[in-house]
Design a binder for these strands. Sequence first.
DNA 1: ACAATAATCTAATAATCGTTAGACTGAAAG
DNA 2: CTTTCAGTCTAACGATTATTAGATTATTGT
Lengths: 223, 223
Amino acid sequence: MSRDLKNLLYEQVARVGKALSSPKRLEILELLAQGEKPVEVLASEAAIDMKLASAHLRVLKEARIVEARREGRFIYYRLAGDDVAGLWANLHAVATEHLVELQVALSQIVSGPERLTGETRLSLLDKAEKGDVLVLDVRPEEEYQNAHLPHARSIPLSELKRRLDELPRDKEIVAYCRGPFCLMSSEAVALLKKRGFKARKIGDGVAEWLAAGLPVESEARSR
Amino acid sequence: MSRDLKNLLYEQVARVGKALSSPKRLEILELLAQGEKPVEVLASEAAIDMKLASAHLRVLKEARIVEARREGRFIYYRLAGDDVAGLWANLHAVATEHLVELQVALSQIVSGPERLTGETRLSLLDKAEKGDVLVLDVRPEEEYQNAHLPHARSIPLSELKRRLDELPRDKEIVAYCRGPFCLMSSEAVALLKKRGFKARKIGDGVAEWLAAGLPVESEARSR
DNA sequence: ACAATAATCTAATAATCGTTAGACTGAAAG
DNA sequence: CTTTCAGTCTAACGATTATTAGATTATTGT
């Protein structure tokens, strides 16, 4: 009798687990953690076609971890809550901690200590506040406007080359993007170092920052 | 070029997601969050046969979220770290928050406000410390010995009926077991109320308590 | 050495999932 | 009112996965 009920409970939780069991869906979730986006944008950023993106979004929607909103011809998807971004951060933290294969793969794109701990986050926050370092957000501008790390300045990777004169040469530049699997900040640091700036990247994105219990900033957005 | 690498990263995380996508595996994970157990025990507690349990454990082991240790004829499985219990707690918290179906199912086994928040946890901890309430752990004794809530007393559900005289009639009794999906504390409360005790249950187990950043206690164990 | 126990490994089946293609829907623009 | 655009829905395929049964391995007790 109670076994049926128990099974029902675990089945419901497994619905969310299933939603997290496909690489493409995880990639979409990470994109959605940067703010709401229409299907076409998600599809092109995840390098899949729209039909497949739509199918994956359906699974995520049925697990109730994303929601949709129509505006004109576009359908904007967003995470169903901040806790979903936290779950994604938690999931990849556990994977990074225990999967040697993931650690090896990650070590190919990152070089140093860009995995932050509680203390290094606080010290970064402190240095950013004092202006000792410049925190640089290299994601597309809409994502920055939606939410960004405290005191961060926005220069999207695509504009970085022609906006180098906005950056200081005497301060350390700390670049970040969407999270530990996002390559934009790596590319930004490579460019900056080649041009003689003192730059490094961190693996954190907004979701990781929030999951660590730290605040993020957000521009007032028109609705 | 970088797309392949990106896919590889998400694929690795999805391995952990896949491990969380089956109800039976989640049930096994919750059991393992109570302490290490041999395959046979896991199988009987999850009401599946040993072969199937072994197959599920293999998936969990390949996702590196559980580990195995042989002792004589038995192979004991355990979680690969506390972070895995935290991930499970996080997953079912998100599911409970967003899935209406799960909320409905849960409301059938629980009646009142047994979902704790940060403040209610702290106030419970405080009252338990002062002795204003008796926190009662109704899980099997080994699980209590492995880890239990602060100041909790152990009376396994199976022994509760004949050990009622150990319980106070003037204090409120707060029962808990393995987590929000575990029915033992509900049964304990039903029994206690019928016998005239002042009793209620909480949905927290050790994993939820730890995930909330609170300490748990543990008996010295022989190895 | 031999049987019993605890568990894994292999093979096979049924069910589910990822992916793609084609027909369809709802909103806007000519 | 037709066309176009953004996206969904349906159907279909091949690839995975869950589950079961049967044979096999490691350890202990006789």
